[in-house]
Write a protein that binds this DNA or RNA. Structure first.
Lengths: 144, 144
DNA sequence: AAGATATAAGACTCTTTAATCTTAAATTAT
DNA sequence: ATAATTTAAGATTAAAGAGTCTTATATCTT
């Protein structure tokens, strides 16, 4: 998997929060509901989303009527923001052959080619926002 | 990591075997030597290269003067062949969001984009052979 | 035939990632 | 105030990937 499971769950949850958010009322969305819809453990989801709230991508609120909400408009949350928090940027920076000494000056045989491709991937995640992906999707099937 | 560590080691080992092979004598290359140069455990390497010999990418020979050798010319061993054996093709087929139901008919929000990119990656691994990558490299630093 | 050398195969251990469970803290509603 | 609801935090367990170790088998050399 290019992205870790945790990262993928974070993105799915963010997508769900996006599509669930009522722009007028901005009620918090309980993690129980998100976990149920994504079909994954509530406590596990909790830990993942904590990373997003700590990174100020989401904000959370405790107690009855609590939950999470995007901290900013979905149109300004890029997928790369989430990836950076959960997985880090290693996938877009490391040598494809895992060689620690591979660099511009001492490139591994695949260096040039891989660099091109991984930049394309990075651009893709830098280009799309939660709003882009939630848009137009009548039914988002995000279950496992 | 896009490729597993085992897969990366398999590629590195194959690259080393390629660059070490004397086309005239075609002596087998002992795994001890390969392990030493790649700086990884002999027994671990053994298991990885067994996959390649079982897949007929390499051939092996036991006893003194034994070792491994490419089963065919380096110019006809594509990186994808090795990846297919060690990691399988999941990386080039699965949904980037890990959704089992994502398909052409019911695509996830990133489906189209990801498909393009992963095809590019696949093409890259389908294009390069061991000979391509071993060529011209005076010193291959394949150590961890 | 015997000893040395080398891969094969499988059991075992360690590390990382994934997932669960328990307790604490915050907030609301009554 | 008290009880109910909800996230936070940390401990614990499970599963998968990575790596090691032991024993078996094949082959060469003497």
């Amino acid at each position: 998997m290019f992205l870790s499971k945790s990262c993928v769950y974070a993105i799915r949850a963010a997508l769900l929060v996006t599509s669930r958010t009522n722009k007028r009322t901005r009620d918090f969305i309980p993690l129980q509901e998100i976990a149920a819809e994504l079909n994954l453990s509530f406590h596990f989801l909790t830990k993942i989303l904590q990373q997003l709230t700590q990174a100020k991508i989401m904000e959370s609120f405790r107690g009855p009527r609590g939950g999470v909400l995007l901290a900013k408009p979905a149109s300004s949350v890029y997928l790369i923001d989430i990836i950076k928090v959960v997985d880090g940027m290693g996938a877009f920076e490391d040598c494809v052959l895992g060689l620690p000494d591979c660099s511009e000056k001492a490139p591994c045989p695949l260096h040039r080619e891989w660099k091109k491709r991984r930049q394309e991937l990075r651009k893709m995640f830098e280009r799309y926002t939660l709003a882009d992906l939630a848009r137009g999707k009548r039914v988002l099937n995000l279950k496992n």
